[in-house]
């Protein structure tokens, strides 16, 4: 059986001076999208970064097991700090393609263009010649997504990738993520503070609080009939917004 893209996190502990994540366990099946939700200080971002091995300075994994089957790549809330401000975005993507192996510099450039097109960037050839600061927030996030895809990932880790974006752009990026996932059989681990976003992207949800798992379950079940009081309070705190009349429901 093909297990490429699966993730097992078992009793993960992350510490700085004190322990911040107290034994989080979760799994992602091949091709599955799992969301981690929680408020600030819940340890959701630390958990994700521990999976990628990208913990901030002074923070380390102090216990537990992380097992990724295949390659993992990550996208972040603030793409600008992960892009080289002095290099054209096309070159940055090409470099990652070349580093991912198998390609000559020329082939890498071609591949980079393909990737920029695959993240639905309009006029990719022109855009590849621009610098990160010349792009809009949504475009930067797509470039970051192209960089992640250049690594041919089996598992995509997403750290609040749409939090800094406008709602209309957020909608586009989420749609793109769903398309890419279907095309490439990506597994996804998606961290967000926004329950509504997570339920749109993910089949399963893990609720974290204070570095511990509060609840795990199918996304729909968790938001419609939460098992824990904490999850219920999170769901209740979401402000309702009616769908305008005469609009196309989806």
């Amino acid at each position: 059986m093909n297990t490429l893209g699966s993730l097992v996190v078992d009793d993960l502990r992350v510490s700085a001076d004190v322990e911040l994540v107290h034994g989080v366990s979760l799994t992602v099946a091949p091709g599955e999208a799992v969301g981690i939700v929680g408020e600030s200080g819940s340890g959701k971002s630390l958990t994700l970064r521990a999976v990628m091995g990208l913990l901030p300075r002074g923070v380390h994994r102090s216990g537990g097991r992380v097992q990724v089957d295949g390659t993992a790549a990550m996208i972040f809330q603030d793409p600008l700090s992960f892009l080289d401000p002095l290099a054209r975005v096309g070159r940055q993507v090409a470099e990652v393609c070349a580093a991912a192996g198998r390609t000559s510099p020329r082939a890498a450039r071609v591949r980079a263009l393909e990737l920029l097109e695959s993240v639905r960037l309009p006029d990719a050839a022109d855009l590849a010649r621009r610098y990160p600061h010349q792009l809009s927030g949504g475009q930067r996030q797509r470039v970051l997504l192209a960089l992640a895809l250049a690594q041919e990932p089996d598992l995509l880790l997403c750290d609040e990738p749409t939090t800094a974006l406008d709602v209309t752009v957020q909608r586009e990026v989420l749609d793109l993520l769903a398309q890419l996932r279907a095309e490439r059989r990506l597994s996804i681990l998606f961290v967000s503070h926004d329950l509504a976003v997570v339920t749109q992207v993910c089949e399963r949800v893990v609720v974290l609080r204070g570095g511990r798992v509060v609840e795990t379950g199918a996304a729909l079940d968790v938001v419609t009939s939460p098992a824990s009081d904490y999850t219920r309070s999170l769901v209740d705190a979401v402000l309702p917004l009616p769908v305008p009349a005469g609009g196309g429901d989806d």
């Binding site: 709602v167 209309t168 957020q170 909608r171 989420l174 926004d194 329950l195 509504a196 976003v197 339920t199 749109q200 729909l220 938001v223 419609t224 769901v235 979401v238 309702p240 917004l241 009616p242 769908v243 305008p244 009349a245 005469g246 609009g247 196309g248």
Partner: peptide, 23 residues
């Protein structure tokens, strides 16, 4: 405004907001 947004852009904004299922 929330029932019958007057401008197409207002409608686009309203429709783009992710909503919790069952609410």
């Amino acid at each position: 405004f929330f029932r019958h947004p007057g401008h197409p852009y207002s409608r686009a904004l309203l429709e783009a907001v992710p909503r919790l299922p069952g609410r």
